[in-house]
Amino acid sequence: MDLILFYLRKLFTILKNEVLVLPSRVVVVLFFLLLLLLPVFTKDPYLLRIFTLTSIFAILAASWDLLSGFTGQMNFGHALFFGVGAYGAALLNKHVGIPPWGTVPLGALAAVVSGLIIGIPCLRLRGTYLALTTLAFPIILMGVVFAFPGLTGGELGISGIARLAGSRVIDYYIAVVVMLGLCTIMWKITDSNTGIIFHAIREDELAVKAAGINTTRYKLLAFSLSGFFAGISGGLYAHFMRIAGPSTLEVSMSFQVVIWAIFGGIVTIYGPVGAVFILFPLLEFLRFWQEFRMLMFSVVVLLILLYMPDGLFRWLRDKVEKECPRCKIRNVAMRHTCRVCTAPLD
């Protein structure tokens, strides 16, 4: 009993001193709670479908941010990892009979391998050249898919694979819990020493090399990690949709990820996740105006990028929070002095 009370007190202290002091953290907690409690309030299959897919794509968008945002390895072919994860999971399920809980991580491992395969030849490339090279890989894989229709199903894809779970609510919880878990892991990675090296590689790779750090290893690690997370999302997508087709490798899929990430704000992890949770349901909401749906969607994206070039969530965060010039701790914007070092904030 004492132990429970101790943990409850600890939880309360953390909530009071770490969470409630910053609006962004309160929003994150509310976001977690809202997602986890949504099926308690509604079991509408359409709504749950939208949020299941949103969660799956949120993992994909965050994984792009990990590689391209944090490490600066501009990847315009992120659909490759997604497609490899989807096809890997579908093939293992269809031909080997492995259930989704096994195929999804194995598909993700296949995506890791593909991350290494494209990472190695791309090590010497930077910026536009890297972006264009990575763009080619999903197109090459699509050619492979069409070249072996007996195995991959050709332009039809691999259909009729096992469902993620027996019900829509369980599908939803699997996608949401995996998304929340993986995004937290990605955020923790970026906050770790590895994350700091990723940052440094993006800012000045030569300086990092001069400091004695093996940047090749870290860049390959970034490709592998990003491939793993994107592969998980691809596997989840294949089992949820019950098909892995060439559309998972299309160029439009790669660019969609880039749009999500930039809309929300790159180098944040939470930005791309938030962006998917706004843009994906928005596109569905705009169905009431079918003729202008895509136009309205494009206008919203353009306006946000025009007036908030660092992304919507960075802009919002900067409006409600301020960084202490001395200790770099974030404070609520209404404060005049830092909550830790009491330095003036204005």
Partner: peptide, 14 residues
Amino acid sequence: NVTDATNAMERLIT
């Protein structure tokens, strides 16, 4: 967008 197509079908039905 294949995903869009399935969402449209789900919306029609549910």
